[in-house]
């Protein structure tokens, strides 16, 4: 798929709802330097969402969709949870898998795409909640990493099962009392970033989604590394404001508070040696491109 193929038939253009016309006219498919700064200037790849007002997950969705390097050739795999309510609004190919199966589905999909389109870059990105990634789907998550499958896994970590009313999840912090977990969590938050590193992921990031530029950088890096080298994992804190007793306006502050250096969502990264090398190459190429563009501009002036 390329933007050239996303065209409305001329004779039926006038009857198409405006959101589709906008997608064709001003979405950022095919734009090389797309990023979060396009939000507000161009048609976003997420229409409207059915999440709660002020939900940090909706911010995360917008930043991720704005940052995918190759949205027209990307397939996202989702799973049961709040994220699955958003995928119908997303203008990127996506598959909803059974609860927990997302990394197994993505494995088959990535392999099939490489056979079907050998000369084309096709990215696969898994996006699921902590229940799907760490509890119900942990087997599939780990096995995909062990096998060095070339796709990115993104976990929206809200530290509980928000969609079903607040049950305890593996990523819930120790001692937390939720609406449907009145005793309080008895054991520590599962250390999935460390497990990811040990399981063979080449790029592992833990952070919140309070900074769009950071999300843009880590999403791009994760997709590029997965494309060339092997599995990558992003664990993004997207607190469920309802389940932790916050108001709609307090999601951002909650993330800022949780990312302080001593807090549990302080920024952490692991990059393998081959991945470091790749990022250095990409960065060098970007610099070259920028220098060439600058030179061209100065010649033009």
């Amino acid at each position: 798929m390329s933007k050239e193929r996303i065209k409305i038939s001329e004779d039926l253009y006038d009857i198409m709802p405006s959101d589709y016309q906008d997608l064709v006219k001003s979405a950022t498919y095919g734009k090389e330097d797309r990023g979060w700064k396009d939000i507000g200037n161009s048609k976003e790849l997420i229409e409207q969402h059915s999440l709660c007002a002020g939900c940090p997950e909706s911010m995360a969705f917008r930043y991720i969709l704005a940052s995918l390097p190759n949205p027209e050739d990307t397939v996202m795999v989702g799973s049961t949870g709040c994220t699955s309510l958003v995928f119908p609004m997303v203008a990127v190919h996506n598959i909803h898998s059974l609860f927990g199966n997302q990394n197994a589905i993505a494995t088959g999909l990535k392999r099939a795409l490489s056979v079907r389109f050998p000369g084309r870059t096709k990215d696969v990105v898994v996006l699921a909640g902590d229940g799907a990634t760490v509890d119900i789907g942990l087997d599939m998550t780990l096995q995909a990493w062990f096998r060095q499958e070339k796709f990115t896994t993104i976990c929206f970590d809200n530290e509980l099962y928000a969609n079903t009313g607040g049950q305890e999840s593996g990523l819930m912090q120790k001692g937390f009392v939720a609406k449907m977990a009145p005793v309080g969590k008895l054991f520590d938050k599962v250390r999935l970033p460390e497990i990811a590193r040990e399981s063979g992921c080449h790029y592992v990031i833990q952070c919140t989604v309070s900074k769009p530029s950071l999300i843009e950088k880590v999403v791009r890096n994760a997709v590029m590394i997965a494309r060339e080298i092997g599995p990558t994992y992003l664990q993004l804190y997207t607190p469920c404001i309802l389940e932790i007793g916050k108001n709609s306006m307090e999601g951002l502050q909650e993330m800022r508070d949780s990312e302080k250096p001593t807090e549990r969502f302080a920024y952490r990264e692991y990059i393998s040696e081959p991945a470091k090398q790749l990022l250095a190459e990409v960065s060098a190429k970007d610099k070259e491109k920028k220098a060439a563009a600058k030179q061209l501009a100065s010649q033009g002036a």
């Binding site: 065209k7 038939s9 001329e10 004779d11």
Partner: peptide, 16 residues
């Protein structure tokens, strides 16, 4: 037919 996937689709749109 709404999306011009190919020439045939566009022609069908005209016919519609």
């Amino acid at each position: 037919v709404l999306w011009a996937w190919n020439e045939k689709a566009a022609k069908k749109a005209t016919a519609i």
